[in-house]
Structures are given as C-alpha cells and as structure tokens.
Amino acid sequence: MDEDEAFEAAKDGGKGNIGKELADCIAYITMFANYFEVDLEDSFYQKMEEVRNRKNRDVGV
C-alpha cells in the first residue's frame, strides 16, 4: 500500500470517531454559550461579517 492509499484508509477508518468527537465539541460549546447567555447564531453571523470584510480573507477564521 502506498502513502496515499494508507492515508485514505486511515481517514475512512476514523470518520465515525471524528464525528462523535465533533458532536461532543458542539455539545460543550452549546453548554458554555448557554451558561454565559451568548447567542451563538448572532455571534456566528457577526464573525462571518468580520471575516467577509477582511482584506486578506485566506488567513484563518
């Protein structure tokens, strides 16, 4: 198996676990937002507007 095939095999094998871990992250983020009374939807759209107005849009979020 060459390097590309090995990478694809590893990526395919980990998708289920990564999905579960990302779901945990979303749950914790939601709990923090609720605790601090942060409107996640509003925060998301504010951040996207900030990103849209950046001069160099390719540099991280």
Score class of each variant (00 low, 15 high):
residue 3 E to W: 04
residue 3 E to R: 03
residue 5 E to R: 03
residue 7 F to T: 04
residue 7 F to S: 09
residue 8 E to N: 10
residue 8 E to F: 00
residue 8 E to I: 00
residue 9 A to W: 10
residue 9 A to S: 14
residue 11 K to Q: 14
residue 11 K to E: 12
residue 12 D to T: 10
residue 12 D to P: 00
residue 13 G to N: 02
residue 14 G to C: 15
residue 14 G to D: 10
residue 16 G to L: 11
residue 17 N to I: 08
residue 17 N to W: 05
residue 19 G to D: 06
residue 20 K to L: 14
residue 20 K to M: 12
residue 21 E to G: 10
residue 21 E to D: 15
residue 23 A to D: 06
residue 26 I to C: 09
residue 26 I to V: 15
residue 26 I to A: 07
residue 28 Y to R: 13
residue 28 Y to D: 13
residue 28 Y to N: 14
residue 28 Y to G: 05
residue 29 I to E: 09
residue 30 T to Y: 04
residue 32 F to I: 06
residue 32 F to G: 02
residue 32 F to M: 09
residue 35 Y to C: 09
residue 35 Y to A: 09
residue 35 Y to I: 10
residue 36 F to P: 01
residue 36 F to I: 07
residue 36 F to R: 09
residue 38 V to Y: 01
residue 38 V to P: 00
residue 38 V to C: 11
residue 39 D to C: 02
residue 39 D to N: 10
residue 40 L to T: 01
residue 40 L to V: 01
residue 40 L to I: 01
residue 41 E to H: 07
residue 42 D to Y: 01
residue 43 S to E: 12
residue 43 S to V: 07
residue 44 F to R: 03
residue 44 F to G: 00
residue 44 F to Q: 02
residue 45 Y to H: 13
residue 48 M to A: 07
residue 48 M to L: 05
residue 49 E to Q: 04
residue 49 E to W: 01
residue 50 E to N: 06
residue 51 V to K: 11
residue 52 R to V: 06
residue 52 R to H: 15
residue 52 R to N: 14
residue 53 N to E: 13
residue 53 N to I: 09
residue 55 K to Q: 12
residue 56 N to C: 07
residue 56 N to V: 05
residue 56 N to T: 04
residue 57 R to D: 07
residue 58 D to A: 11
residue 58 D to H: 06
residue 58 D to F: 05
residue 59 V to I: 15
residue 59 V to A: 13
residue 61 V to F: 07
